[in-house]
Nucleic acid binder design. Structure first.
Length: 852
RNA sequence: GCGAGGAUGGCGGAAUUGGCAGACGCACUAGCUUGAGGUGCUAGCGAGUAACAUCGUGGGGGUUCAAGUCCCCCUCCUCGCACCA
C-alpha cells in the first residue's frame, strides 16, 4: 500500500487526543518552553491557508523542543470579540454569541485537522464570561491605579459605523473596516494611560529578541524626544504660552509662535479685531478630517493679534494659529524658528513673517538651515557650536535659571482609547451617576455579563446598543445605596488579546486571572509567532498590560514575549483584465486560466466565452479577490503533512509565500519517496532491518542530524527541509535499511511531517507505540566523527581566480597541496612561464597561487 | 521626507559570516518506465562558445591573495511612520 495520508493522519490525531500527548503540566526542575501563536479571530469563513503558515513554524519548533527534553506549552484559543460578528448580527440578526460559537467550532475542527501539538485542554475564548471576567478584573485594577481613566480627547469618529475607532483602526483617514470616512471629534472616553509607560516600553525593547523592524516601529510609535518647555508671556495679559521645543538653541530666532487651532488659550489671547477670522479658521479646521489635513502640506493660518515675549530677546512676537501644529503633541504650541525649521520657513514665507538667522552655515533667505553651525545673533551665546548638544544645554540652563524653561522629555505616543460604542465586547465594569464614575465593580460582582439585546445596530448617537438593555442598565447599588447606571461602552477588541498569554498558563483558575506559580513557571513566552501587522497595536498593548501587572506584583516578568518572529503572508494570483482605459485594473476571478507567462495570462471569465488577456499580481488571499485556498481542500488531496512541509519549505519564515500548487505536489511526492525507504510493495513489506549501517549511510544520517538541528534552532525551516531532501535521496540511492539510520531519520522528519513520522517510527522502524509518540523520543545527536571527511575538496585559484578544485587529505600541508595543484593540467597551463611568488593556503578552504 | 529591510538563474530560494556562487525545489528539455486516478527513474538546465577562453550576485568605485558577503557613492523595490516642533 502506498503512502496514504488520509488513513494515517486521522488515526494519529485520535491517538494524540486520546493519550493527552501534548497536554502540558508544570514540572519543576524540567526546562520549559512556551511557544505562542497569535490566536485567530474566528470569522464565519473558516480558516484559510494564511493561518497555518505561522502556526506550522511554531509547531515544528515545539515538536523539536519536546524531543530535546523541554516541557512544552503550546496553547491555542480564539480572539472572539470584534466587529465582524457584530456586523453579521446587524445584517442577519444572528446573535454574536451564536455565530461566534459556530465559527469557533469550525476553526477548532480545522485546526485539529492540521495536526498541531496544541494542549487543547487550555483552549480559551476571549468572549467566554469565564475569560472576560478576568479581563474586567484587570481593568478594575488598572482603574484603581489611574491607568484606566475617563478622558476628554479627540477621537476618530466614524459616522457610518456609528463608533469611535483607535488610531490603528484608521487607515488613510478611513476606517480599516469598510473604508468609511472618519472625522475628528471631541468625546469623553475611557482611556488607557499607555503614555505613562513610554519610558519602560522603550527601555524594555533592548531586553528582548524581536525583529529590528518591529522594534523600530515601536520606537517610532513611542516617539521619544528630548527638549524643553519654554514659557512665553503674552503681552498685556496674565496668560503664558508654553511651547515644547527640541531646539532651545534656536530660541533667539523664534520670530513668532503658533498654536494649534484647538489650543485652550486661543480664545483667551485673541484680540477683538481678529476674533472673527480666528473663529472662522477654527471652524474650518474642525471640519477638515485628518485625511484632508494630511493630504495637503500647504501652510494656512491666522494671526490671533496677540503678541508674546520671547524670553531670550525680550522682543514681542506675533501669535498665530495654524493646523500644521498638532494639538495632541507637546503642548500644542510651538515657537517658530523659520531660519532653521523647514515648516516654519515655509509658513513664514507664506505669511510674510520675519526670518532670522541664529545658526551659521546656511543661507536662510533661500532655505531653512537645519544643520550644525555656530550660534549667531544670539547675544551672549554667539559663537557657541551647536554640534554635540552643548548649545542646547547652555541655553536651557540659562533660561531655567530665569524660570522660563524646563528641560523635558516628550513622547509622541498618545493614550489608548479604550472604549467602543459597540455591543460585542467586554462590558466595562463600572457604575456611573450621570457622567461621573462612582465605582468599579468588585471581584465578586464579576463577570459583568453582556445582556441580550434585540437590536445590535449602532444607535447613531454614539451610544452603544447596550443602552437599549434597560433591565440591565440601571441598578440599585447595594454598596452605595444609590440608583446607578452601568457603562454602556464596551472594551476594544485588543482588550482580551492583551493578556491571553497569561491565561493560557492557568486557564481554569476561577480565583485568579493566573496564579503566580503558573506564570512564574511558564512565562515569559519563549517564542511568539505572528503577523507583522500587529507591530504597534497588540504587541504594544500586551507589553503595557504586562508592565502594569508586573508593577502590582501579579507577574514576575516585565516583558511578556522574549522572542518574536513574524511569518510572511500567503499570496495568491489575482487576475486583472483591461477596462475601457486600456489599463489592466478590473479584478476578474477566472473560471479557467488558458495560458500564462511572466506577467500576462489568457483567462476565461466567469460564464465562459472567449479567453481574454489579463495580467496577474501576487496579492494577499481574500474572499473578495477569489484567490483563497482552503486548507481542507488541500488536506483532502495531499494530506496535512505535505501542506506543513510545503509551507516550511517554500520560503524563509518571514517572507511572503506565493502559493504554488506544483511545489506542494512536489513535497507530497517527496513524502511518498520517504515512505518507500521504509516500506516496499503493495503489502507494505517492512524494509528496515537490524543491520549495521555502512559508513556512507552514517555519514548521510549524521550530517542531516547536524544540519536539521542547527536549522530548527535558527528557525531556518526551508533549509532544514532541503537537508532532509538530500538525506532521503542519498539513503535511497544507498539502499539503506538499517534501523540505526532509518529510526533517527523518522525523528528528524517528525517536527515537519508528524503523522507520517509516527508511522515510520513505529510500524516502519519497529519502535513501540507510546502515548506521547515519536515527539518524546530523545532527539538524535550528531556524532562528530561522521561530520568530517578524511579528504576535502578545495578550490584552487591562480592569482585569485578559481581554476579548478583539488581533493586533498584533510591535514595536507602546504607543500602537498601545491604539488597536487601543480599536477593538474589546468593549473599547469595557468602557471606556464611563471614562477610562484606567493602561496596562500587555508587548510580545508582554499589554495591560491600568486604567480608572476 | 524620516526609519527599517531588501535587490543572487525563467521562478521560490541556498551559500559555517571574506575562501569552489547558484544547495534544495518549481518550471522547462531529453531518454527510459508506467499506461486509468494528481506516477516512478536517469540526465541536462546562469550567460556565452563547436569546445575552450571568457563573463556573471541592481549600477559605479574601493579594501583584500581572495568580495554576493566588508567600506564609500548611486538606482530601484517592499514595509512602517509621516507637518511630531
Amino acid at each position: 500500500m502506498p503512502y496514504r495520508p488520509s488513513e494515517i493522519e486521522p488515526r494519529w490525531q485520535d491517538h494524540w487526543e486520546k493519550h493527552d500527548s501534548y497536554v502540558a503540566r508544570i514540572q519543576h526542575g524540567q526546562p520549559k518552553f512556551y511557544a505562542l501563536d497569535m490566536f485567530p479571530y474566528p470569522s464565519g469563513k473558516g480558516l484559510h491557508v494564511g493561518h497555518p503558515a505561522g502556526y506550522t513554524a511554531s509547531d515544528v519548533v515545539c515538536r523539536y523542543k519536546r524531543a530535546r527534553g523541554f516541557n512544552v506549552l503550546h496553547p491555542i484559543g480564539y480572539d472572539a470579540f470584534g466587529l465582524p460578528a457584530e456586523q453579521r448580527a446587524i445584517e442577519e440578526g444572528i446573535a454574536p454569541q451564536i455565530s461566534t460559537a459556530e465559527s469557533i467550532e469550525t476553526f477548532r475542527r480545522q485546526l485539529k485537522r492540521l495536526g498541531y501539538s496544541y494542549d487543547w485542554s487550555r483552549e480559551i475564548s476571549t468572549a467566554d464570561p469565564a475569560y472576560y471576567k478576568w479581563t474586567q478584573w484587570i481593568f478594575t485594577r488598572l482603574y484603581a491605579r489611574g491607568v484606566a481613566y475617563v478622558g476628554e480627547g479627540f477621537v476618530n469618529w466614524c459616522a457610518a459605523l456609528g463608533t469611535v475607532l483607535a488610531n490603528d483602526e484608521v487607515i488613510d483617514g478611513k476606517s480599516e473596516r469598510g473604508g468609511h470616512p472618519v472625522e475628528r471629534k471631541r468625546m469623553s472616553q475611557w482611556m488607557m494611560r499607555i503614555s505613562a509607560y513610554a519610558d519602560r516600553l522603550l527601555a524594555g525593547l533592548d531586553t528582548i529578541d524581536w525583529p529590528d523592524a518591529t522594534k523600530a516601529a515601536q520606537r517610532e510609535w513611542i516617539g521619544r524626544s528630548e527638549g524643553a518647555f519654554v514659557d512665553f508671556a503674552v503681552d498685556g495679559s496674565a496668560e503664558t504660552i508654553t511651547v515644547f521645543t527640541t531646539r532651545p538653541d534656536t530660541l533667539f530666532g523664534a520670530t513668532y509662535l503658533v498654536l494649534a487651532p484647538e489650543h485652550a488659550l486661543v480664545d483667551a489671547v485673541t484680540t477683538a479685531a481678529q476674533r472673527e477670522a480666528v473663529a472662522a479658521y477654527q471652524k474650518r479646521s474642525a471640519a477638515r478630517s485628518e485625511r484632508d489635513r494630511q493630504a495637503s502640506k500647504e501652510k494656512t493660518g491666522v494671526d490671533t493679534g496677540a503678541r508674546a515675549i520671547n524670553p531670550a530677546t525680550g522682543e514681542a512676537v506675533p501669535v498665530w494659529i495654524a493646523d500644521y501644529v498638532i494639538a495632541g503633541y507637546g503642548t500644542g504650541a510651538i515657537m517658530a524658528v523659520p531660519g532653521h525649521d523647514e515648516r516654519d520657513w515655509e509658513f513664514a514665507r507664506a505669511m510674510a513673517l520675519p526670518i532670522k538667522e541664529v545658526i551659521s552655515g546656511g543661507d536662510v533667505t533661500k532655505a531653512a538651515w537645519s544643520g550644525e553651525g555656530a550660534m549667531v545673533n544670539s547675544g551672549r551665546f554667539d559663537g557657541t557650536a551647536t554640534a554635540g548638544g552643548e548649545a542646547i544645554r547652555a541655553v536651557t540652563a540659562w533660561l531655567a535659571e530665569k524660570g522660563a524653561a524646563r528641560a523635558t522629555v516628550n513622547f509622541k505616543i498618545r493614550d489608548w482609547t479604550f472604549a467602543r460604542q459597540r455591543y460585542w465586547g467586554e462590558p466595562i465594569p463600572v457604575l456611573k451617576e450621570g457622567d461621573a464614575v462612582v465605582r468599579a465593580l468588585t471581584p465578586d460582582e464579576l463577570p459583568l455579563e453582556l445582556p441580550p439585546v434585540a437590536d445590535y445596530a449602532p444607535t447613531g448617537t454614539g451610544e452603544s446598543p447596550l443602552s437599549r438593555a434597560v433591565n440591565w442598565l440601571d441598578v440599585d447599588d447595594p454598596v452605595t445605596g444609590r440608583r446607578l447606571r452601568r457603562e454602556v461602552d464596551t472594551m476594544p477588541g485588543s482588550a482580551g488579546s492583551s493578556w491571553y498569554f497569561l491565561r493560557y498558563c492557568d486557564p481554569h483558575n476561577d480565583q485568579e486571572f493566573c496564579s503566580r506559580e503558573a506564570s512564574d513557571y511558564w512565562m515569559p513566552v519563549d517564542l511568539y509567532v505572528g503577523g507583522a501587522e500587529h507591530r504597534v497595536g497588540h504587541l504594544l498593548y500586551s507589553r503595557m498590560w504586562q508592565k502594569a501587572l508586573h508593577e502590582e506584583g501579579f507577574v514576575r516578568d516585565a516583558e511578556p514575549f522574549a522572542k518574536l518572529r513574524h511569518q510572511g503572508m500567503v499570496l495568491a494570483k489575482t487576475y486583472y483584465t483591461a477596462g475601457e482605459s486600456g489599463k489592466f485594473n478590473h479584478l476578474t476571478i477566472p473560471e479557467r486560466v488558458v495560458k500564462e507567462d511572466e506577467k500576462t495570462a489568457q483567462i476565461v471569465a466567469p460564464g465562459g466565452g472567449e479567453p481574454v488577456a489579463a495580467e496577474f499580481r501576487w496579492e494577499k488571499m481574500s474572499k473578495r479577490k477569489g484567490n483563497v485556498v482552503n486548507p481542507d481542500d488541500i488536506i483532502d488531496v495531499y494530506g496535512v503533512d505535505a501542506l506543513r512541509v510545503y509551507l516550511c519549505f517554500l520560503t524563509p519564515l518571514e517572507s511572503d509565500k506565493p502559493w504554488q500548487t506544483s511545489q506542494l505536489e512536489a513535497q507530497h511526492d517527496w513524502l511518498k519517496r520517504v515512505w518507500r525507504l521504509y516500506f516496499e510493495g503493495d503489502e507494505d513489506t517492512q524494509r528496515v532491518a537490524d543491520v549495521a549501517p555502512t559508513a556512507e549511510e552514517s555519514k548521510v544520517l549524521h550530517r542531516a542530524i547536524d544540519k536539521v538541528t542547527r536549522d530548527i534552532e535558527a528557525m531556518s525551516l526551508n533549509t532544514a527541509i532541503s537537508a532532509l531532501h538530500v538525506a532521503t535521496r542519498d539513503l535511497a540511492r544507498l539502499g539503506a535499511r538499517s534501523r540505526e539510520v532509518l529510526g533517527p531519520l523518522a525523528q528528524l522528519m517528525a517536527p515537519f511531517a508528524p503523522h507520517l513520522a509516527e508511522t515510520l517510527w513505529t510500524r516502519g522502524a519497529g519502535h513501540e507505540v507510546t502515548p506521547g509518540g515519536v515527539a518524546y523520543a530523545p532527539w538524535p545527536v550528531a556524532d562528530a566523527k561522521w561530520l568530517v571527511d578524511d579528504t576535502v575538496t578545495i578550490g584552487v585559484q591562480v592569482n585569485g581566480k578559481t581554476v579548478t578544485t583539488v581533493e586533498l587529505a584533510l591535514d595536507a600541508d602546504e607543500a602537498t597541496a601545491v604539488a597536487a595543484a601543480q599536477a593538474i593540467d589546468a593549473v599547469a597551463r595557468q602557471l606556464a612561464g611563471k614562477t610562484i611568488a606567493k602561496v596562500i593556503y587555508k587548510s580545508g578552504k582554499i589554495l591560491n597561487l600568486i604567480a608572476k
